Computed example of a mutant assay.
Amino acid sequence: MTDSDQRNTPPAAKTSVRMIKVPEDRAGQRLDNFLLGQLKGAPRSLVYKLVRSGQVRVNGGRAKADRKLEGGEEVRIPPVNLNEVGENAPPPASFLERMEQAIVFEDAKLLVINKPSGVASHGGSGISHGAIETMRALRPNQNLELVHRLDRDTSGLLILAKKRSALTELQALMREDRGGIQKRYLTLLVGRMPDGVMSVDAPLHVGLRQGGERHVQVNPSGKASLSHFRVLERRGGHSYCEVRIETGRTHQIRVHAQHIGHAVAADDKYGDPAVNKRLREQIGLKRLFLHAASLEFALDAGKTPYVLNAPLAPELVEALDRLA
């Protein structure tokens, strides 16, 4: 199969200008995500470029990428030749196979993967193939939408919605913070956490460092954030824990762990480089020890319960065994 066979856009010429009326079931969807659904295979960077340059119009006017669309609005999509976009090569076959094997649950509404560490939730910033782009390549006839995100270095459960109704209901549950979705992570904290159970209630503020890199810190001006740590085992002077979070802030567990003086093992952003080096040499831990292990929620106004689980990644199991 050639590259052009795998694309939805004909290889010869640019598409023509399209005027698309937003379906009622897409009401509330962000403009960028709507465009990604219309321009199958387009990299996110191209979509943002089209929006920033004003080539995309909503009801005849310019709009931002994060604009929430309403049913019946008219979106102008400019001519695009995806075959001219160098970064739009399809994901490698080996990576497609790896991501296919990562699927842990699927029904008519949801597709759930056990995302490997090192795979971004979505492309952008030099990343051609994130989890969502790869799953769309695997399921070209389905409208998959990312429900939430995981840090690139975090492994575990990542939910993709097949239906707009499931996406909006899950995102509403995510916004509830306390109890809408029960989230359980597994992590190795550096050092001996003094108490078996510890709750961290500390507001988090997201800042940007030079170069645009996000950096999060505890700050009174930040958003309320609550994490519950419980030690499962003491291993080699470190603390193997489960973490339940009631909020879903950027880098929440990692920053809360740093805040209590026990950073997540192998955290190259918030941890101690010397300790990380020692763990790499002693137990072969080369990645962040943080795994989204389970999610519990109910759809259809509470009538349809879901209990999703993803086993701890093999490289983390091996690192734990070497600590014993």
Rank of each mutant, 00 (worst) to 15 (best):
I181M: 11
L279Q: 04
L160K: 00
A301C: 07
V190T: 11
R62Q: 13
S53R: 09
G61C: 09
F229P: 01
V264C: 10
H259L: 00
S121K: 03
Q142R: 05
D195S: 12
R7N: 06
G207W: 01
E133N: 03
D3W: 09
L35W: 07
V243Q: 08
L186N: 06
D153P: 00
N88F: 11
Q55P: 03
E73A: 03
K269W: 00
A301Q: 13
G236I: 01
N81T: 04
E24Q: 15
D272Y: 05
Q258V: 03
G191W: 01
S128C: 07
E176N: 15
H262V: 05
Q210V: 06
K14A: 12
S199R: 12
G54A: 06
D5I: 00
K286P: 00
R30P: 12
A120K: 04
G126Y: 06
D66V: 06
H205L: 15
R249Y: 04
L279G: 02
A257T: 07
L96C: 11
L35T: 08
P78G: 03
A310E: 11
K49I: 09
V85Y: 02
H256A: 06
K21V: 14
G284W: 01
Q55I: 01
E246C: 08
L232D: 15
S117M: 02
L50T: 11
N143K: 14
L144Y: 01
G86V: 10
Q101M: 08
N83F: 14
E106S: 13
Q55Y: 05
A298P: 08
R30M: 10
R76K: 13
V243M: 10
G237V: 09
E87A: 12
R26A: 15
A263F: 02
N141Y: 04
K183Q: 10
P273R: 06
R98Q: 13
E145D: 07
E87W: 00
D195Q: 14
F289V: 02
L316A: 04
